[in-house]
Simulated scan of single mutants.
Amino acid sequence: MDPNTPIDTSGLYRDITGFAQDTPTWLQHLAEVWTEAGLLLFGVLFVAAWWRARRRGSRALAIAVLAPLATAVAYVVSELLKSAVDEERPCRAVAGAAASLVQCPPAGDWSFPSNHSTIAGAAAVALALAWRSLAWLTLPMAVLMAFSRVFVGVHYPHDVAIGLALGAVVAFLAVRGGTRACARIVDSMRSSSTPAVRWFAGPGDRAGQTPHPAEAAAAAHGTAPGAGQGRGRD
Rank of each mutant, 00 (worst) to 15 (best):
193 S>Y: 01
156 Y>R: 04
167 G>P: 11
183 A>Q: 09
180 R>I: 07
131 W>S: 15
144 L>Q: 11
126 A>E: 13
160 V>Q: 09
199 W>L: 14
130 A>R: 12
175 V>Q: 10
195 P>I: 03
145 M>C: 06
213 P>R: 03
150 V>A: 00
168 A>P: 05
207 A>K: 14
118 T>D: 13
164 L>Y: 02
149 R>E: 05
161 A>C: 01
180 R>V: 05
205 D>W: 03
154 V>L: 01
202 G>N: 09
128 A>C: 09
175 V>A: 03
139 L>Q: 12
135 A>K: 12
179 T>M: 03
158 H>S: 15
171 A>L: 01
169 V>G: 08
144 L>V: 14
205 D>A: 05
131 W>C: 12
189 M>W: 13
168 A>E: 03
202 G>I: 13
198 R>A: 03
194 T>W: 03
120 A>R: 12
121 G>A: 06
123 A>C: 03
171 A>S: 07
199 W>D: 07
197 V>P: 10
202 G>R: 06
159 D>V: 04
178 G>K: 00
188 S>T: 13
157 P>T: 11
158 H>D: 06
207 A>E: 15
152 V>R: 05
205 D>S: 09
180 R>P: 12
214 A>M: 07
169 V>C: 12
139 L>W: 12
195 P>W: 02
136 W>L: 15
156 Y>G: 00
186 V>N: 13
130 A>H: 06
157 P>Q: 02
124 A>I: 14
194 T>A: 06
211 P>W: 06
207 A>C: 07
193 S>H: 13
200 F>H: 04
201 A>P: 08
205 D>L: 08
169 V>I: 15
162 I>S: 14
182 C>D: 08
143 V>G: 10
157 P>R: 04
129 L>S: 05
183 A>F: 03
140 P>F: 08
180 R>W: 13
188 S>F: 01
188 S>G: 11
